[in-house]
Design a protein around this nucleic acid. Structure first.
Length: 420
DNA sequence: TGTCCACTGGAAGGGAGGGCTT
DNA sequence: AAGCCCTCCCTTCCAGTGGACA
C-alpha cells in the first residue's frame, strides 16, 4: 500500500499522534454539543422542565413545553441534560426508559421528514419520499402505540417548521400535540424550542395553547454568567495554567456583546486554543482570542457563500459589481435585477423573475451577507436599499472561484439608469 | 390631498425529479 | 404501468404600500 517516497502528510499525522497536546486536555468538552454534569445558571430552567416531565415516571401524561430564548442561551443543552437525567433515573429505578428524539427543524424542515425521523426512532423505516404524510403519521402512531411507553419529542428551532409552510407546519404540530388523545398505550410529550420570539404569532391558536401548556423562558447570559460557564469548561478542556489570566473575561465580554451567546463563547475559546496550539505555544493569549474571532467570522461567511446556489451567487456578484461603481451609492432591487440579468445573458443561462430575485435578496439579507431594508422613494416607488455586509475579499476569494462565474469576469456591469 | 411609482410579499399553482402503492 | 404523493424551485398574479410630487 505504501510506496518508498515519504508522504509529507505523515509528518502532520505522526506529530499529532505522537505528541500529547500541550494546550488541550479534552477538546470535546469545548464543543457546544457536549452536555456537562452541571449546567451553571440554568438550574431554574432545568428544574422546571424536570418538574413537568416527572409525572411521566409514574405513568401519567406530561404537559407539552415551549422553551424560548435567544441563540446560545442554553435551551437545547438544558433539554438534553434533563432528558439524560431522566433516562439515568429510569435506569436507576428499573423503570421503562422513555424514547427520546431531538429533531433540529432547521435541518429536518418538512412535516414528512420530521415524521420519518420519528418513525426511525420507533424502529420503522419509511422511504425518504413517496408516501403521503398521513400514511407516515399513521405508521409512526401504530408503532409507538404497540406497547406502553413514553416518548419525549424535542423539536429544536421549531419555528423553522412553521415559517416554511404555515399550514403544513401548524398541521403537524397540531397532530403531535394532540397525539395522546389517539393513543391507547403509549404517551407523547412535546418540547418545542424556538429562538424567534415572534414565532408565536405564526401559530394557530389551537396549536399554541397545546404546545405551550407550560413555558420556559431562557434569558441571555450576562458576561459574569458566561465566565462561570467558560471556567467550568476550561477546567475540563484545557491543561492547568494554559489560559492567560485575561482570556476568559475577554471571551465572555465579547460573547456578552453578542447578546450573551454561550455557544459563540465556547467556539471562540476553542478556536483560540487551536490557534495557540498550531503556533506551538504553551499558553493561550488574548491575541489568540482576537485572531480566533476573526477566523470564526471569516469561516462562517466563506462557508455560507460557498454553499449558495449559482443564482444566489450571481445576485451577490451583481451587488458586489454595483458597489464597485462610483454611482452605486444607493443600490435598489431594480438595479440588482438589471445587473443580474446582464450577467446571466453573458454566460447564457436563464434568469429568474424579479419576484424570485427579490426573495433571494431577502434570503441574503437574512444570512447577514447583505443588508436590504425596504424604503420608499415617494412617487419613485418602494424598493429595497441594498448594501454588501461582508468583506469584498470574500467575493473575490469565494464567488469568483465558482467555475460559472469565472467565465464572466470580463463582463462590465452598468446601473439600470445608465441604459436610458 | 390625491396620484402614482416601483416595487413588496402573499397565495396559488406548475413541473421536474424522486419514490410508493396497487 | 398508472396513479398518486412528496419536496424543491420556480412563475404568475395581484393587492398593498410609503411617501414624493403635482
Amino acid at each position: 500500500m505504501k510506496n518508498d517516497k515519504p508522504n509529507p502528510l505523515d509528518e502532520v499525522f505522526d506529530k499529532f499522534l505522537s505528541e500529547k497536546s500541550k494546550i488541550f486536555k479534552n477538546r470535546d468538552v469545548l464543543r457546544h454539543s457536549f452536555v456537562p454534569d452541571e449546567l451553571p445558571h440554568r438550574e431554574k430552567q432545568s428544574r422546571l422542565i424536570a418538574e413537568i416531565l416527572a409525572p411521566a415516571l409514574q405513568g401519567s401524561i406530561p404537559s407539552n413545553i415551549f422553551c424560548y430564548g435567544k441563540t446560545g442561551t442554553g435551551k437545547t443543552i438544558v433539554a438534553k441534560y434533563v432528558l439524560n437525567y431522566l433516562i439515568d433515573k429510569c435506569n436507576e429505578m428499573n423503570l421503562t426508559i422513555p424514547i427520546t428524539e431531538l429533531i433540529n427543524c432547521r435541518l429536518v424542515d418538512t412535516p414528512y421528514r420530521v415524521l420519518s425521523n420519528l418513525c426511525k426512532s420507533v424502529g420503522v423505516t419509511v422511504p425518504f419520499t413517496g408516501l403521503p404524510t398521513d400514511e407516515v403519521y399513521k405508521r409512526f402512531q401504530l408503532a409507538l402505540d404497540s406497547k406502553e411507553q413514553l416518548m419525549i419529542i424535542v423539536l429544536d428551532e421549531v419555528d423553522e417548521l412553521v415559517k416554511k409552510d404555515h399550514k403544513k407546519g401548524n398541521d403537524i404540530l397540531y397532530d403531535l400535540t394532540r397525539m395522546n388523545y389517539n393513543l391507547e398505550y403509549a404517551r407523547v410529550s412535546l418540547i418545542g424550542i424556538s429562538n424567534d420570539l415572534k414565532f408565536k404569532q405564526y401559530l394557530d391558536p389551537r396549536v399554541l395553547s397545546s404546545l405551550s401548556e407550560e413555558e420556559c423562558v431562557f434569558d441571555a447570559y450576562t458576561a459574569n454568567e458566561l465566565q462561570d460557564i467558560l471556567n467550568q469548561r476550561a477546567g475540563m478542556g484545557f491543561h492547568e495554567k494554559v489560559l492567560e489570566a485575561g482570556v476568559i473575561p475577554f471571551v465572555s465580554a465579547l460573547a456578552a456583546q453578542e447578546h450573551g451567546d454561550a455557544r459563540r463563547a465556547l467556539d471562540l475559546l476553542h478556536k483560540a486554543g487551536d490557534i495557540a496550539e498550531r503556533k506551538g505555544q504553551e499558553i493561550v493569549t488574548e491575541a489568540d482570542v482576537k485572531k480566533g474571532q476573526k477566523a470564526i467570522e471569516s469561516d462562517i461567511v466563506s462557508n455560507t457563500v460557498n454553499k449558495m446556489p449559482l443564482q444566489s451567487k450571481l445576485i451577490l456578484y451583481s451587488i458586489y459589481k454595483l458597489e464597485n461603481l462610483a454611482l452605486a451609492d444607493e443600490i435598489k432591487t431594480g438595479d440588482v435585477y438589471y445587473a443580474y440579468s446582464q450577467l446571466c445573458k453573458s454566460i447564457n443561462i436563464e434568469f429568474l423573475t424579479q419576484r424570485r430575485v427579490s426573495e433571494l435578496i431577502t434570503d441574503l439579507d437574512m444570512l447577514g451577507i447583505i443588508s436590504a431594508s425596504v424604503i420608499s422613494k415617494g412617487r419613485y416607488g418602494r424598493t429595497k436599499k441594498i448594501h454588501l455586509q461582508i468583506p469584498k475579499k470574500v467575493i473575490t476569494n469565494v464567488v469568483e472561484k465558482d467555475y460559472m462565474i469565472e467565465r464572466l469576469k470580463p463582463v462590465d456591469i452598468t446601473l439600470n439608469k445608465d441604459k436610458e
